[in-house]
Design a protein around this nucleic acid. Sequence first.
DNA 1: GCTTACGGTAAGTAATGACTTACGAAGAAT
DNA 2: ATTCTTCGTAAGTCATTACTTACCGTAAGC
Lengths: 100, 100
Amino acid sequence: MTYEESLAALADPTRRQIYEHVTRSAGSVADISKGFPISRPAVSQHLKVLSDAGLVAAKQQGNRRIYRATPDGLAELRQYLDRLWGDVLGEFAKSFEKEL
Amino acid sequence: MTYEESLAALADPTRRQIYEHVTRSAGSVADISKGFPISRPAVSQHLKVLSDAGLVAAKQQGNRRIYRATPDGLAELRQYLDRLWGDVLGEFAKSFEKEL
DNA sequence: GCTTACGGTAAGTAATGACTTACGAAGAAT
DNA sequence: ATTCTTCGTAAGTCATTACTTACCGTAAGC
């Protein structure tokens, strides 16, 4: 569960769409698959990547697994970007000083 | 210059390293290439992707191009993640209510 | 019991993309 | 003027990965 994994997980367009869907409403794999033009195993594989990144988590409910979004992976990613943001603003300010 | 581009740009490990390097200190393509085990054209291609995403920008200086990090692309990405963060926290809270 | 629904995993394929070398254009230096 | 540096781009190669179909285990329904 690192920010690298979250970054790689959200980079793929369809996987990002799946994540956004889960973000808005949790559901079983079959439910989630309904809205996408790819096969159910493909969705399952995407959910595994999202799960490894800490972006979603599954709760077993009888025969089905309910996937829902978790804050963990996203929090890590936001923290990393905040660090970058600080560096960028710092260097950006320094570049102005040099130009004067 | 969309958040999708920034996401895809930062997903690749070596490209992310290049970006972080530029973040800390601006420099020419040759300068940046010094620290990496890949060819100069490869670095150039990575810089193009970063540039298209609005993460870096080049300033022509005679024969050389000085690349530096720009806030634009990173700002878009952070904004997108903030939107996601809100959705995730909202759904996360609702899931607690349901369990009680 | 048997069958049906759910979902993870294996294996194979096709597309994407990260790299290489080769080349060409444009400015600096001698 | 020509030589050298800088850097972008084209073309080709190799690895990664997103997808497919096929299969298996497990729980629910009849």
